[in-house]
């Protein structure tokens, strides 16, 4: 199971320093690695929306951060995303544990999960879904390239096909 290491390797290559997060089981796979790595600085948030502001502040001050969160976090962040990084043109790379899709056990996650791609499309946010180990590096790198090129948010979804489903 290499994907968490691959993502962390690419984040490092792109000088991402700050991992701002609301935890979920998928995100924890990355957090386990970055917590012990002195190249990263990890910030726990109370709500995903906060992370939109924090990543923007980090970027405005010249350093790179990502927002790591579960699917439900997009729901908590929509107005912040629409009114801050999009109009101000600030890159906000979002890594999202994709709940409410393939193999979901929890019915209350499904509506948000099924709406997630449409929400991202409605906001014109490019998104890429990690499904197979051999695609992780190129999709992670491509997702970072487009967020910094467009100076706008982009999303990387970690699917249950890759990470396994929750019991």
């Amino acid at each position: 199971m290499q994907w968490p290491n691959t993502i962390v390797h690419v984040l490092k290559k792109y000088d991402v320093r700050f991992i701002n997060y609301v935890p979920d089981a998928m995100g924890e796979r990355l957090l386990k690695i970055v917590r012990d790595d002195k190249d990263f600085d990890v910030l726990p948030l109370t709500r995903e929306e906060e992370g939109v502001g924090v990543v923007c502040g980090q970027s405005l001050a010249g350093r790179r951060g990502v927002l790591l969160m579960p699917t439900s976090g997009i729901g908590n962040s929509i107005n912040a995303i629409a009114s801050l990084p999009i109009p101000y043109r600030i890159p906000v790379p979002m890594i999202i544990g994709f709940r409410g899709d393939l193999g979901e056990f929890n019915a209350t996650q499904v509506m948000m999960g099924q709406a997630l791609p449409d929400i991202l499309r409605a906001l014109r946010i490019p998104y890429f879904t990690l499904r197979r180990e051999d695609e992780v590096e190129v999709l992670t790198e491509g997702f970072l390239r487009i967020t910094y090129a467009t100076e706008s948010p982009a999303a990387l979804l970690i699917s249950t096909q890759l990470a396994g489903w929750k019991e």
Partner: peptide, 15 residues
């Protein structure tokens, strides 16, 4: 972006 001001400032202070 109501509510975001403090979070932006925290991000700047960290960076």
């Amino acid at each position: 972006a109501m509510g975001m001001t403090a979070s932006i400032g925290l991000g700047m202070a960290m960076a």
